[in-house]
Nucleic acid binder design. Sequence first.
DNA 1: CGGGTCAAGGTGGGCA
DNA 2: TGCCCACCTTGACCCG
Length: 270
Amino acid sequence: MGFDSVCNKGLVLELGLNSSMVENNPTNTTKKPCNNLNFDPTLTLTLSSDHDHGVNKRKHACVGAGGDHHGGLYRQDSVSGGGSSFSVASVSVKREREVKSEESERVISATSVEEDDDGIINGRKKLRLTKAQSALLEQAFKHHSTLNPKQKQELARELKLRPRQVEVWFQNRRARTKLKQTEVDCEYLKKCCETLKEENTRLHKELQELKALKMSPTKPLYMQLPAATLTMCPSCERIGDTTSTTKTRPFTMDTKPHFFNPFTNPSPAC
DNA sequence: CGGGTCAAGGTGGGCA
DNA sequence: TGCCCACCTTGACCCG
């Protein structure tokens, strides 16, 4: 029980993505990875108290993996079990692992409990997919991020893996995709936040300047008008009176108000 | 040796 | 009710 297990108990960083983002959310029924950044972001940081881990009642006696519950038992051949073969240089161990992995002979029977070369009973050994296996899985994932049972069987047969392993790979792959997308979204939101902060600072400064001008006894007549009726052109910085219908206006007013959009270029000069 | 990666275990939820 | 999914966690392995 380490730091992770403590921290994960309740701190939830939630990236809420509205409208178009939701359409491509991996959690929805379309199960499509999201590459769309055209969304209304909401960022929520919450402390959840009802997040129970590992103490939940079991819904399935042996869910999925139950059938091949010993699926985690893999033979690593000469490098398995942390035995004597680990005493050699790590480089040679790695090379040996690669050679062995290319032989695709590491997965043992789903129901057997075997011993390695050192006579140590296998616990949960780490399966490493070969490059060829990974490539084929990636290729399949590009086509569709989820598999129907037939596709799963086919892929498993092709890869000489158990269907459960293919299924797990796709689950983990989807999770990785989602995590990556979340990171991208997070970066984007940070930039949004920075831009809005800058704009907020600018507007505050502008407001202070306007207040200062209003306090001045030598202010021009148009500055005595209600603030709501005045608009400053962002380009030429001239003041306009939206209520005036005379031809003596400082400049022609646009009927539409100026709203700042941090993600688009400034409006063209008036 | 600490942190990262990844396959797999475990659980709750949605759906047909 | 069973299946499949997302999500969280675990443990093996790798790397600097």
